[in-house]
Design a protein around this nucleic acid. Structure first.
Lengths: 212, 212, 212, 212
DNA sequence: GATGAATGAGCTTTCATTCAT
DNA sequence: AATGAATGAAAGCTCATTCAT
């Protein structure tokens, strides 16, 4: 009987996230990973082609969850600011909920090369484009100001979120939701969203709260 | 006679920045560094205690330049928004000018541990506190709105800037200065700086231009 | 229903011959063998004790066919040169027909140790002794010259044949039969067989041709 | 101070030859090599890029010596049979003198791939072509018969010599020189060299004897 | 100041084989 | 008869660092 009920692959992945987040990918040996996962090295390599594959899986899981979140929100439709707020809130909340994976992804992703990495980059690009197009449309419709280009604004948003794992501490005073509102507020204001639209967001906030 | 007039240490550091930025710190061997620097391994170890010391120096040089910039700007004094804009512009411009060092610093700094790293962290903390206090003071004086906490705003600013090396390309259409203005504008708007104060920034822009 | 009608053991062996010949025994993993054979690892180990056992079987099959050939020819009897020619022709023709197995046997056999390998070596020794004794008898009877010792001559014959898989290409201009005649002619001449005896071989040639 | 006066590279190479000849290339670990050479693994990798590089060096040393031998003999010129005999004798004698290297080369060379291996193959090809052309010229001049093609004859000669390490034992009754004469005699006779020319070889035999 | 050979620990990965089902 | 997850030992190789010169 296995040490734990969780599948070997799951345990390995969880251990890897913890260790990569704590020590960094390169500073963590496969030995350490399998020891923490209570698994033999051979078993790990039965499920994962390489150490890099762990990194791939970690990011893939995270980006998939986040893309799904965006897709769900975009499907609902609605005003630009309100939608953007919902996306940012979801992004911040899922990032905070998966702080380990987010830390690892932001820090080590550049190490991934080759074909599978291209797939990940495609997912990330889709996320970026979703946000960028949303902002661009809002600018065209006059929901946002046009001082900042949609492209730069998007990159700033992801800059903020990607860096978040470096300073956000889940045991601190601020809840993920509060932080998400703070960030979303800042971004919307920075984009020159008109006060009227901002006000409308209260509803969204409630809705999403109910979601979880 | 040495291969180049530049000091051994300088050449090593420059080579290290390039390689660490291209391939990552761990993926770069000391051998590669000394080869690119046209220096022998022994010579390198004569000037640097360890491979980590290279990382230390790289970040130290960067943060020192940037701290100096902030200190100079703060010394001038003036209104909060105007000062903050100047700081952000300087930060973005120096980051763009030292893209390699900035890339390495943002990506690999977490690897540094021990006493020397503490000194670096102290410098970084001082930078953060400078910005945070500036924002907090501005909020107290009504120059900025108070929807976002000064602390969160500061972390967002540095999030944006630290992530910048991952997407800014010096050969692109946007000049560092334009980008700096775009970012600064976004942040100031996000902080709810009143239009009047924003207008005043034109002068700052000129001043700094003359600086260089 | 199995993927193919051929028995599991047969398919495994055929796959092993191909792969061992292409890549070498050590460079081929059991995984590759079972994949090419369309068989699971467990099934393979059901039929073969070990990876070495594959090597054993491959050589065993080959040497058995070749020993049978020699035995059949020796049973017919007749003059030394004529008999030797028939043996060499048969050896070359079967080697060319089983080029993969011959390649593997010549190259990797030294890896086999232990009791089963001893059995193989005994078969090989019997083959060598058959040829050697035939030559020695021919020398005693004046059918061959005596410049070369029967032992050395035998080893040269097998040297030639064992090396053959390294250069003979079945898709080349020379047919196995032509090559066999060329080699046999060289060896017989080298042994100083008198022309009269050589001439008599035409009959043998015909006989064997009909065989196949 | 090193364990022995001989250079690290030399000791490693000698150990590798011994072990590869005894156990085979794949069955020998780098660990075993460095242990027998009384050298650390790091030191070995300081001199040799890889385990394969050892194989390369071993064959390179051998083929170089043998090519030099052929070149020297060809430079002297003289009748075909006499020259061919000298080449075969030299080949057999150097093979017997470097039995380990010859064993390894004949058995494991096929493992070498890539650019450096191509260089080795070119050397080997040059050796083959030297012999083949010599035979072909002799056939044209009527020094040899034409029953066997020069190409096949050449391949048989090298087949004999390459297989030699598998059965020649230096502590046996036959000296390398005797063996060489036996083999050369067999080959020349097989090629139909006229007795008159063969007789002339006695001189060559003496000369070469004095050489060493 | 500078060299570069040598160290030795540790890394990722592979693989033949086993065994519960 | 057959599966394929799991084992565990060992392999080749890299690398930051040291030190006699």
């Amino acid at each position: 009987m296995a040490v734990s009920r969780a599948s070997v692959a799951r345990r390995v992945l969880d251990a890897a996230v913890e260790l990569f987040a704590e020590q960094g990918f390169d500073a963590t040996s496969v030995q350490e990973v399998v020891e923490r996962a209570q698994v033999t090295k051979g078993a790990m390599y039965h499920y994962f082609r390489s150490k890099d594959a762990l990194l791939y899986e970690i990011y893939h899981e995270l980006i998939t969850v986040q893309l799904d979140g965006m897709d769900r929100i975009l499907a609902v439709g609605g005003a630009g600011p309100r939608t953007l707020r919902a996306i940012i809130v979801d992004l911040v909340v899922t990032t905070a909920a998966q702080l380990g994976a987010a830390t690892v992804s932001a820090r080590e992703l550049h190490k991934l090369a080759g074909e599978p990495a291209a797939a990940l980059r495609a997912q990330r690009r889709r996320y970026h484009e979703g946000v960028r197009d949303l902002i661009a449309r809002g600018q065209r419709d006059g929901e946002f100001g046009s001082t900042v280009s949609a492209q730069t604004a998007t990159l700033m948003v992801f800059g903020i979120v990607n860096q978040l794992p470096q300073w956000y501490r889940p045991d601190g005073a601020t809840s993920p939701r509060e932080l998400a509102d703070e960030i979303a507020g800042f971004v919307l204001t920075g984009l020159g969203a008109r006060a009227a639209e901002e006000a409308g967001d209260n509803d969204t906030r409630q809705e999403r709260h109910a979601d979880r």
